[in-house]
Simulated assay, not measured.
Amino acid sequence: MKFKAFLTLDGVHLLDKRFLPALDKLGRICHVYLTPDHAMFLHNLLGGGGVQSVAQFDKDVLFRDYRISSQNAGRIAFAVDAALLHRALRSALTIQEQARDETAAIQIKLVKKLPAGSRNPAPFLTFETKGRVSAVVQDVPISKPLSRSDVLQIQSALDASQDLPQTLVQVPDLAQLQSLVDRLKYVGDVLTVSIAQYGDLHLQVSTSLVTVGSELRKLRVLGVRADPPIGDQNLSALARTELAIQRGGALSVQVSLKHLARSLHCHLAKPDCAFYGIAPQGACLTVIFQFFIRGTRLSDKSISFYCRLPVLDPGSN
């Protein structure tokens, strides 16, 4: 089992300034999943019950001279502390800048080393900053590479998550949504999310004493869409939502408010767009982040980032 590559300048920027800060907020421990074509950072795809997240990059976005081999079709997966990974990258970047050597490059590779005070070799992800006359090495401890069955389970979970909700609505201002969620956290722990095919997103927290909600209307719709019903304009947001659900034009699920708040930390990755949708049969709440090719409004297919929030039993609140 071997992996080594050099980080590209764009790869360093993406990881350091955008994705690793977001991944650390999603959960301290994540899985790195490397294949012959992609590099992925995953949360909770092997269980755990929290927010599932997948950040996937074409290998050429992050690396050059990418070399990987294993007995599992060239696929390698392991767990790592996202904060330690980020710290090592920042340190390697600082060393690279201080070297004032235009040839200095950051190589990353899997190694086995003997930790101090131990008789058994342990796996590490090593950052080696190489210049003309010197090299500085930093080791990040990782888990033992996952077994073939665990890698197959990850791949099956990834394949299953490719099915998109039939209707997605675009939330234009994630900062505004985060502010709203921060206020709702003082009311209760369970959030009801309803999405209508005509572009309405309704959020509501209810307790035995109070019901508080907010509605975003006439959002951009991808997928299955419908025209707003005539004659419903004078109804309350709750009444409109209930009618849309009865007519089959909307879906509603309950999720943990803490889970939604955690998923909103993904805005640290600086996506250009965010879309929300509810999976068929209300299986989960899906959040898809879209990135544009620099200087255009064209989607960058080499990067994908999405979250899946588990739904709660309606009786849990």
Rank of each mutant, 00 (worst) to 15 (best):
L164R: 15
V140R: 03
L158K: 06
Q155H: 14
A175W: 08
A160P: 01
P145H: 06
P172L: 04
P165F: 13
P165K: 04
D159N: 08
L146C: 13
D150T: 07
S149G: 08
L152V: 09
Q166F: 06
L164H: 12
V151T: 10
L174G: 00
S156H: 12
T167F: 10
A160Y: 06
A175P: 00
S161F: 06
S156D: 15
A175M: 03
P145V: 10
D150E: 15
Q153H: 13
L158Q: 07
S147Q: 05
A157T: 07
D150K: 11
L152K: 07
L164S: 14
S161R: 10
V151Q: 15
V137C: 06
V136R: 04
K144M: 14
V140M: 04
L164N: 08
A160D: 11
S156E: 13
V140H: 02
I142F: 00
L164G: 02
L174M: 14
L174T: 01
L146Y: 09
Q166I: 01
Q176S: 08
K144Q: 15
L164Y: 12
A157F: 09
D159G: 05
T167N: 05
Q166G: 10
R148G: 04
L152D: 14
L174V: 01
V137L: 14
S147H: 02
V140D: 03
D159L: 09
Q155I: 00
D163F: 09
P172K: 04
S143E: 04
V169C: 00
D150Q: 15
D173W: 09
A157D: 03
A175N: 07
V151D: 02
V151M: 11
D150R: 13
L164W: 07
I142K: 10
S149A: 13
V136F: 13
L164P: 06
P141H: 02
D163L: 14
L158V: 04
P172D: 11
V137Q: 12
S156M: 11
S156A: 15
I142E: 01
L146R: 09
